[in-house]
Simulated assay, not measured.
Amino acid sequence: MFHFTALVTCFSIALYFFTSLRVSKARAAFGIKPPAISGDPGFERVFRVQMNTLEWIPIFLPSIWLFAIYVSDLVAGLIGLVWIAGRILYMTGYSQAPEKRRRGFGIQATAAIALWVGAVFGIVRHLFNVS
């Protein structure tokens, strides 16, 4: 069973849902009516956090699950928590100023790449029965 990965998957979905709620609140706060996605830099930063999270989820979710299946559920969960922490740092930094998003972005990108690379090596190892 993949309990750690499942739990981290739920956390990542909750994080994405939270970023969506922040966009709704920012629309009201900055007076940005749908379907507009620009008009105030504060709103645009909140919106970009949600969209960037959405852009990374299709990389993160398959990678964490493949890593869990072919390498380790526990390690996948731990790296997944690092990804979530990076996303939170990205969100809080970018909300303050665009240049403050880099650390969080780097952390989450490194975690996602580690999951993907680990998954590829795990799959190849199993494919060729290498111990």
Rank of each mutant, 00 (worst) to 15 (best):
A26M: 04
A26Q: 02
R27K: 03
R27C: 03
R27V: 05
A29P: 00
F30N: 07
F30I: 00
F30G: 03
G31S: 02
G31E: 10
I32G: 01
I32S: 05
K33T: 12
K33Q: 10
P34F: 10
P34W: 07
P35H: 07
P35A: 10
P35I: 09
A36S: 13
I37A: 11
I37Y: 05
S38D: 13
S38K: 14
G39R: 11
G39P: 09
G39Y: 09
D40V: 06
P41L: 09
G42W: 08
G42P: 04
E44C: 08
E44K: 08
R45S: 07
R45W: 12
V46D: 05
V46G: 03
V46M: 09
F47Y: 14
F47C: 10
R48G: 13
R48E: 12
V49Y: 12
V49Q: 12
V49D: 08
Q50S: 10
L54H: 11
E55S: 08
W56M: 15
W56P: 02
W56I: 11
I57R: 02
P58M: 12
P58G: 10
L61I: 11
L61M: 09
L61T: 13
W65H: 05
L66E: 04
A68I: 00
A68K: 01
A68W: 01
I69D: 05
I69F: 04
Y70T: 09
Y70L: 07
Y70E: 08
Y70H: 08
V71N: 06
V71C: 04
S72N: 05
S72M: 02
D73S: 01
D73E: 01
L74T: 05
L74W: 03
L74K: 05
L74I: 06
L74H: 03
V75P: 02
A76H: 01
A76Q: 00
A76P: 00
A76L: 01
G77V: 07
G77T: 05
L78S: 05
L78C: 07
L78G: 00
L78T: 00
I79V: 00
G80P: 07
L81A: 01
V82N: 00
V82L: 08
V82R: 06
V82D: 00
V82T: 04
W83T: 00
W83N: 03
I84V: 08
I84T: 06
A85G: 13
A85I: 10
G86S: 06
G86N: 04
R87I: 10
R87K: 11
I88S: 03
I88K: 03
L89K: 06
L89Q: 09
Y90H: 14
Y90G: 10
Y90F: 15
Y90S: 12
Y90P: 04
Y90Q: 14
M91F: 06
M91L: 12
T92P: 00
G93F: 13
G93V: 06
G93M: 09
Y94K: 06
Y94F: 15
S95W: 13
Q96I: 09
Q96S: 14
Q96V: 12
A97Y: 05
P98R: 12
P98T: 14
E99V: 15
E99L: 11
E99T: 15
K100Q: 10
K100P: 08
K100I: 10
R101H: 11
R101A: 11
R102Q: 14
R102F: 15
R103L: 15
R103V: 15
G104Q: 03
F105K: 07
F105R: 04
G106Y: 07
G106W: 04
G106D: 04
G106M: 14
I107W: 02
Q108S: 11
